[in-house]
Design a protein around this nucleic acid. Sequence first.
DNA 1: GCGGAAAGGGAACGGCTGTTCCGGATAGCG
DNA 2: CGCTATCCGGAACAGCCGTTCCCTTTCCGC
Lengths: 223, 223
Amino acid sequence: MRGALGTLTRKRRTDAEHNRRRILEVARAAFAADGLDLPVREIARRAGMGVATVYRHFPSRQDLISAVLAEQVARCGEEMQAALAHPDSGRALRGTILRFGERQVNDRGLNEALLGSHVAGAAFAEQRRAHAEAFARLVERARDDGAVRGQVSVEDARIALMAISSFRALPAERASSVIRRLTDLLLTGVLNEDPPEQAGTDDDVARSFGHDDRHGVRRVRRA
Amino acid sequence: MRGALGTLTRKRRTDAEHNRRRILEVARAAFAADGLDLPVREIARRAGMGVATVYRHFPSRQDLISAVLAEQVARCGEEMQAALAHPDSGRALRGTILRFGERQVNDRGLNEALLGSHVAGAAFAEQRRAHAEAFARLVERARDDGAVRGQVSVEDARIALMAISSFRALPAERASSVIRRLTDLLLTGVLNEDPPEQAGTDDDVARSFGHDDRHGVRRVRRA
DNA sequence: GCGGAAAGGGAACGGCTGTTCCGGATAGCG
DNA sequence: CGCTATCCGGAACAGCCGTTCCCTTTCCGC
């Protein structure tokens, strides 16, 4: 549908190129921290420019979201492919679940797009399918190697992965240790091994469930 | 601050009382299915009345949400108290986690308020704390009875409960079987027992992770 | 330097949402 | 059956968001 020249990235003026990079950088941080519902105006404000500038580089809000997430989604896929090439299938499975979960929990926008029901996620249906297929092969390989308990199915592993990735309501930064512990708890029921070590417990979860009054606003303003 | 008469429920006209009940009923179903961000107009539309009628009975959107959730939250608390009185502490813990999780997964509004970061949840901070305390006692009792693995802490059980409750991106109705399986997987790492039975696997999770293109809209309209 | 094309930015438009207003309906008491 | 306090509901108001307009500013080949 596009003309032959349309796919070529035309030479842009240097200030425009600089602004484009800055928008992507600011938007990535903003979506990761505050989710995909952040208003375009707010991203423009954080980037120190007007809304029209953002819209010149990304014709619609959805285009901006897709551009920001494309890189992150691709990285997830690469990691899964790399895990398939790892010699130890059990460790590869554990590592994939852990890494995927950490990424999902630490990037709210990515999570909303890949696991949530956000409209923006529809653009990544193909990648989602690829991830699911790679993950299934990962689990099957681990099962063939005897690294997975007999009664655990591919569906079970998928459930575990989604449960870890869905984990939310965390204060923010120290989510990783909770994710690690949850992974251990879950993989105890999936893998044929005991968890590698006992990470020290922390009270992040307590602050979220029952001991925390802080409630974020839907729409974030003011950096 | 309220006058002595303010707390008495004044005698209402029967049509008003009928409408009030209907609003609560419709809003409960609506919030459970579509989340707390559903516009007041849409609830009024589904109830077959004008917005002003809703606002007469519930002065603000937050009041409506609180009124709807109060009953559900109270029921969660009652169930935890009942579990504390159950003779078998291990079964009580398992049942509580399972029931709490199912409730959270099947009621999107309740989930957003109790575990998500939705503003409306701030009204239930006290109940959240009570739930957390009751749950902690439940876990400690089970641990004293030897029903919980030695290296599992109260925090771990909390993590498990939150992970189950956070599980989302499910087609809708058949979430229960997935929740049951996830509970089994997690409790394998928490309780000193094996899962009671093997429920048949289903493909709900597959549809969510990788095989599903359906993406809901943020704001739902049209029943 | 200079001129024109490319880029920037604030204001404006249309649509959606929470909330309020006010004229019209109606329950329910006498 | 009539009358009035009570209730209903569409329209209106204010504010937010995505997107576009259009005038001004800036780059960059000459």
